[in-house]
Design a protein around this nucleic acid. Structure first.
Lengths: 186, 186
DNA sequence: AGAGCCATGTAACCGGTTACATGATTAG
DNA sequence: CTAATCATGTAACCGGTTACATGGCTCT
């Protein structure tokens, strides 16, 4: 089982969905830290079906192309539950911007400053989006009595990480800009 | 030109090195956010040589296997300098632990807590290592009058990001543990 | 008239990991 | 005697991206 397989099971454990639906959710960095294209999702769903972790329901449509709705099975839920508490390796981080910072002594500070301003802006925007989302999620969770076995808790946990991540990244960019501005003014 | 190519040029811009030396530096998450295996480094160095961005010096050794010392050329420095200030895409984040947090509503809190304790420990350790490294780097930088065109600045900039990253990750793990402990005690 | 959404797939490519291959020296 | 370090390479595999392929409906 690949990680993407677990991603799809994790989403289907919350609600049945089509490959298209899943592809929409995995388009951007929304809700949690994973992304995938439809070209990877469709074959993976076929594999999950072959393994018996999901079942398909063909839904003919007239005005739109036909759909295939996927549902998680008991077997799928079992493997997902086992996987959740199994140990994981820490992911390897590869960040080209940090690498550029490492080589920044070779560049004109004035030219480099633009680069970090753009990224500071991007991460600040994402942060704001996550924070808005968090507010809404907390409300939803409250209506269910803040139970840890509620899917809302999972969403909040992952968005919490996103907020911390973007906050820290934006702060680092601003720190870099400060350093570069100081170097220019000296 | 691949990103790994720029990584290698970035390292060779500081000091000549062999493929083995570079592989040692790129083994773990030291100094900055990149990793690579020797099986990827050796072919990449050959490509850089073909493109004229580095030159090789064969160093025969008697007690040890022969070496190939790589040096960056003027052409190599030129492309590296241009690359440093060129725009970059934000990297896609894929973190299996965050994904597990997203699915945590399916698990027993007591079993999940172990998982986050292990990761909290790991990130705290890495943080300490980065902080020790930072202290030493700041000293070195001070001896050069804290110039922004000093390689030490590059190292400090990237370690700064590492410190922020690990700090935030460890804090998130502790927050997760808190939530799970609260759920158990309730 | 053209862009964008709905909906599902396949195929080529590319970066990175794992494993295969060799062989001398040194430390436990 | 075994494991680790030095030193350089190749080959198979795998996950993810880009591009190819189709086709009707809706909004501007």
């Amino acid at each position: 089982m690949t990680t993407l397989g677990h991603v799809l099971l994790g989403l289907l454990a919350r609600a049945p969905a089509s490959g298209y639906d899943l592809a929409q959710k995995l388009k951007g960095p929304v809700d949690f830290f994973w992304q995938a294209r439809h070209s990877q999702i469709y074959p993976e769903l076929a594999r999950l079906e072959q393994d018996g972790y999901v079942v398909v329901q063909h839904v003919p449509q007239t005005e739109r192309p036909d759909k295939k709705i996927y549902r998680i099975t008991d077997a799928g839920t079992t493997v997902l539950k086992a996987w959740v508490i199994a140990p994981v390796e820490v992911p390897v981080v590869r960040d080209e911007l940090v690498l550029k910072a490492y080589c920044l002594w070779l560049a004109h500070p004035a030219a480099a400053i633009e680069l970090f301003r753009a990224h500071a802006h991007h991460h600040t925007e994402l942060l704001a989006r996550y924070q808005r989302n968090q507010g809404w999620l907390l409300e939803q969770w409250a209506t269910e009595g803040r139970r840890i076995d509620s899917p809302w808790f999972g969403s909040i946990a992952s968005i919490q990480r996103g907020i911390g991540y973007e906050q820290e990244y934006a702060a680092w960019c601003r720190w870099m800009i400060e350093q570069l501005e100081q170097a220019i003014s000296d």
